[in-house]
């Protein structure tokens, strides 16, 4: 496999002037990782951990203070314009669509920005419109679209030049359950059909579970975890809960370690009263991730 993204000791330091003091903030500290062609990787971390700063450096919006990176063999800061023909980016809070016009006009302008011949651009845009089910929506002014509809249009806008690498910063932010599910399915199809490499930041564990095979976790600017999603579930799942509902309607909960004999736990609960129901639950990915944040990548 070819590494589409290579990041080596990337750092970013901001200097913020506060009255007389010049404060030094190390937003990203010596982050290194590689992402193979066709991989979909989640880049997660608490607010202010350095996720967006890293993505902005990789998309050449910010210059790094130290370290290097290569995207598709190109240096993002020295070959910005050449690189931009091959990468796409969606920042959940920002729009590249013209507010008063139907999205279709923005798609046509974006095709011209990437120097794509009209015939080729039309064929691919129509295909994306079909895949993202935007037939009717692409003709409506963007201001009249819902957030979920607009986000689908934003993703189409970022795919018009068929990028090999796609950076997604909170692509499902603020969307309802249905819109989130639709966008995840569409992105998953894209990875499968086009082999697009995706680096995605998200606070939504649903995005991670359904789209990504690998997780990079960053906290206080340092990369604290680089593992697969299945490894997280296997290695960091240390406890499970036995919950019983008694005949009188009250509940009893017993937390045991994964390797511990379940009989002891159940016995302790059923010895008290007659039970109506019993179930064993595992912590959700969200709980595991919360615990990982709290303990610096270790549970």
């Amino acid at each position: 496999m070819v590494a589409n993204i290579i990041v080596d000791n990337l750092s970013k330091t901001f200097f913020i002037k506060n009255c007389q003091d010049l404060r030094r903030i190390e937003a990203v500290k010596s982050v290194s990782f590689k992402i193979e062609e066709g991989e979909c990787v989640a880049f997660i971390g608490p607010n202010g951990s350095g996720k967006s700063t890293t993505v902005k450096m990789l998309t050449s919006i910010l210059y790094p203070s130290a370290g290097t990176a290569e995207i598709l063999g190109m240096n993002p800061w020295q070959e910005r314009r050449r690189l931009m023909y091959h990468i796409g980016a969606v920042f959940g809070q920002r729009s590249q669509l013209w507010y008063h016009l139907p999205a279709y006009h923005s798609f046509k302008l974006i095709a011209a920005i990437y120097d794509i011949p009209d015939k080729k651009a039309k064929a691919w845009t129509d295909e994306l419109i079909r895949r993202f089910d935007l037939n009717r929506l692409a003709e409506k002014p963007v201001r009249t679209l819902s957030l979920g509809e607009r986000m689908r249009c934003e993703i189409v806008a970022s795919l018009i030049h068929r990028p090999s690498v796609l950076f997604l910063d909170e692509p499902t932010i603020g969307l309802d359950v249905e819109a989130k599910a639709l966008i995840r399915t569409l992105l998953s199809d894209l990875v499968r059909q086009e082999g697009t490499t995706i680096l995605m930041t998200s606070h939504d564990t649903g995005d991670i579970e359904q789209l990504c095979s690998r997780v990079l976790m960053i906290n206080h600017g340092c990369l604290i975890l680089d593992t697969t999603v299945s490894d997280i579930k296997q290695n960091f799942l240390t406890q499970k809960e036995i919950i019983v509902v008694y005949e009188d309607g009250t509940t009893g909960v017993k937390r045991i370690s994964v390797g511990q004999d379940i009989h002891d736990g159940i016995a302790a609960l059923i010895s008290r009263k007659t039970i109506r129901d019993i179930r064993v639950t595992y912590p959700s990915l969200e709980e595991i991730i919360r615990s990982l944040y709290a303990h610096g990548g270790k549970v």
Binding site: K56, T59, S60, I61, R80, R81, R82, L83, M84, Y85, A89, F91, R94, S95, Q96, I113, Y114
Partner: peptide, 11 residues
């Protein structure tokens, strides 16, 4: 800090 959109285009 809204120049990002323009910096992401190859123009």
């Amino acid at each position: 800090g809204d120049l990002d959109t323009y910096l992401l285009y190859p123009k």
